[in-house]
Amino acid sequence: MKTPTERTAQRLTDKGEIRAEALLPIKPRPSIAKWASIVLAVYVFFVGLEFFVFNENWNWPLVFEYLFGQRILQGLLNTITLTLITTLLGLFIGILVAWAKLSPLAVLRKLAAMYIWVIRATPLLVLLLMIFFLAALVPSLGIGIPFGPSLFEVPTNEVISRFTAAVLGLSLYLGGKSAEVFRSGIIAVDRGQFEACRAVGLSPLTTYTRVIGPQSIRVITPPMANEIITMFKNTSLVSVIGYTELLTTAKLIYATNFQTIPLLTVAVIWYLTLTSIAMYGQSLLEKRFGRGFDRRTDKEEQREPTEKVETRTSTIADGDIR
């Protein structure tokens, strides 16, 4: 038996041997972890099978009975409506606040920072209740001069319904949360991009809609998807002000028939569905706005003859001036 040093010494003199070894094919290292993970997966599968399928307490027939029930579907529709409206409104507020926070005007920056501070600190539940009971703070809403005359006034309770309170609370909340996501997207874009836009004289609007914005969307899509998917579930908090969306509907039903688990399962199945749709949307967005960042891998692109490119290049670079 040779020691490692002896072997190395011999190899240095024996070119033929190392060459033979160098040409051996490379195969994956035998891995216990790989087999262990497969065993684990099988185990988890059977645990799941026992827990979900062969477990009568889930009461699957009842789950499927309620899944497309009239009341549940109405609740689902309310959840979708509320999410869509508050997302649109919330993202709009978010863009405004992010823009204010990046403004050269110090007053706007401070206002935006305060807004984000308050929203971050306030639990959504508190925000919703405060808005719903706004009439206790200000009996009427209007536009006018503080401490002075008012130009236009309506009783608060006429404006703040369960629905408007829910929309206001949720979109103000998303506005504060998404503002920071938008801002992170803007500051992630290279400074040179802003300079290039200025150098060719693009207007601020074009700069943001055609160059900076699309590049930010790529960065902010994953965190923004988080925020928006959270909104689906946050809508369930509006049950405190009595707006009946999906989860509240499920709660109302099991309050009368005591089938708690099956009805919660119904809600979860719908939340899973909505989340899947949102995640599909996320992957579409990432693909669309990843263009120009990920290299294209279409077979057609790869097949392009590179020689043609080289000759064309040389025609203009032929004057060797170096």
Partner: peptide
């Protein structure tokens, strides 16, 4: 600014276009 055309050290092409 339109009187001047600028070419940058790091090109600064718009990567999304």
């Amino acid at each position: 600014k339109l009187n001047f055309g600028m070419v940058f050290q790091t090109f600064n092409l718009f990567p999304n276009r």
